[in-house]
Design a binder for these strands. Sequence first.
DNA 1: CATGAATGAGTTTTCATTCAT
DNA 2: TATGAATGAAAACTCATTCAT
Lengths: 192, 192, 192, 192
Amino acid sequence: MPKLGMEPIRRDALVKAAIVEIGEAGTLDVTVSQIARRAGMSSALAHHYFGSKEEMLVAAMRHILTLFGAEVRGALIMARDPAGRIEAVVRASFASQNFRPATAASWLHFYLQAQSSDKTRRLLTVYHRRLRSNLMVGFRPLVSDPEAASETIGALIDGVYLRQVLRPEAMSNAAAIELVLAAVHRLIREGS
Amino acid sequence: MPKLGMEPIRRDALVKAAIVEIGEAGTLDVTVSQIARRAGMSSALAHHYFGSKEEMLVAAMRHILTLFGAEVRGALIMARDPAGRIEAVVRASFASQNFRPATAASWLHFYLQAQSSDKTRRLLTVYHRRLRSNLMVGFRPLVSDPEAASETIGALIDGVYLRQVLRPEAMSNAAAIELVLAAVHRLIREGS
Amino acid sequence: MPKLGMEPIRRDALVKAAIVEIGEAGTLDVTVSQIARRAGMSSALAHHYFGSKEEMLVAAMRHILTLFGAEVRGALIMARDPAGRIEAVVRASFASQNFRPATAASWLHFYLQAQSSDKTRRLLTVYHRRLRSNLMVGFRPLVSDPEAASETIGALIDGVYLRQVLRPEAMSNAAAIELVLAAVHRLIREGS
Amino acid sequence: MPKLGMEPIRRDALVKAAIVEIGEAGTLDVTVSQIARRAGMSSALAHHYFGSKEEMLVAAMRHILTLFGAEVRGALIMARDPAGRIEAVVRASFASQNFRPATAASWLHFYLQAQSSDKTRRLLTVYHRRLRSNLMVGFRPLVSDPEAASETIGALIDGVYLRQVLRPEAMSNAAAIELVLAAVHRLIREGS
DNA sequence: CATGAATGAGTTTTCATTCAT
DNA sequence: TATGAATGAAAACTCATTCAT
């Protein structure tokens, strides 16, 4: 039982426990006690470190976005051409890390919560801007209306994501990626 | 003084109040009292008619799906060819009735709730099947893989819907329809 | 168990229970549950009727002030001359109703709480103004500096009240009244 | 590294921090953490030195009383006659040290707390006895009922003190002293 | 000596639900 | 049919206090 520097460890544990708990419950209506118990501590300690439930959930959403951003950046390093950039974004969206069931479900619930929480909305806006910007850079040299193309693929990613979460058995993850990439290539082929 | 046949009127009022309330709040976390008050009655009466909050919310979701189904059927009457059928489905998805902000937002929240509620999931499955079936009938004569096409357009509809709810200012409703129809036509053009 | 019109009954019961509970405890740190239990209901019902603990305590303070005001008005009716007015105020301050131990102690705690609660302070200001105004009317024809006289007697009342609450055994209630009236008469005698 | 003789320094810092904190908050409901933070240490250390919150608050009250006692003794040294003794007590009561807002407010809160805390009550009794004894010694050669005179002036001091704390803007400190001294002189003049 | 870590016990508040009329 | 009355159960949050280092 180490004594110093527990804060980052505890915060991390809580954030991860929150994501798993929300993912399993399939709803944001999980109690601080549930999350704390899963993280192996008392709910009082959770409050001590985050101040409020909302702050904890915002931290969880931020965590997901951070991971996602890192994964995208990693994939982009390997992209050799514009089409590759788009593919990187798509693959990263459904990649392992971001697509464990708990993470994906949590993410979706946070996503919808943007409607009723300012802090969550702000994080969502960042996500939207980044996704869109990445897609735009890829589409610009390839199609005449990169804006529409980005919006289409962005929406398609969200839609497929949504369905993957709600019917995980309906389609394999690889199939989901193929479906989105097919749409991308259709856009590029017609883009001239 | 006992009024006859109040039941359907009351139930209807509650269902509509629930949708509006959820839409405005941007979350399913609305109280029975709020809904009942908006419907002009006591929360006790709401329980009398629905037995529980959950039943009431399920009825609200069913109501949205019923309206949506009717709207699609209506649009299909006018369809003269397979492409027209697909277009009918798409247009109906974003048509007035189903796309008033409150309805759209409520629908999305119910949609996600399928993860944690069996009854809701069952309704969602019906929706998915119907949507898919309608798209399949349209795509079958037009593309080689109608299944993939239907899934793509279904997901795209969901994704655009999601974004329309969260960023209603970002795109006009008409533009949303155009975006989806463009994807449909791209599929058809390449489908040969 | 009557069904209608319970609200005023319940509110009244809660206000009185709060006063007794605070009086007995000798502190404002009493829980809503304690008060509600003493009033014969659940704490949930207390919240239902008052919205919050603070509102309930403010209502209790207001109740004390209302009773006090009524008692003073009643005594003033009998006053035949200026000195009689002052005497009426003094006697009312220590009169039966306002001076049951629980009421007196509660009143003092509310009094001090004005330091940290805006709502309480506003009520206290009303009390101060009324007391002062009543004393001023009495002193004006009798002394050259009615303002100083009123402030002196006002402060003396508060001080004696404070000591009566903290050491109820030290002096009889009648003796307390005599002590204050003696000071009043000293002022009047020298006032010429 | 262990510093010797830290105990009195720490205790003193905590006692003073408690007084300021209570004074600023205008209530005894301050947390040990707040006090400890203001005193520049952890709440754990506060417990180490005082054992419990209550002990700390009692120490704070004792501190105020000690200061007050010293100030009175100092003033009495200068008194040349009985009336001077009384004046010394009155002036000391409102003198600088004891009448900084934080101290005065804290004192009053401790004063009321005597109702619910035995230890506090014991300290209060000491204060009352000393104040009364000092006044008695002064009044005895001057009035026929020194007991009543002492009680009157003691209560007046408390009442003015109370009002000064709650409405510091209403009267200057000097005016408060004058008001009490005027009452003293009235008593003495009539005392023959 | 000193503190970050940790928690149990409690407090206010909310809400779906039941019941008597 | 309709509702005001009523509550049990639970949730977020607080805080004095203890403990290991």
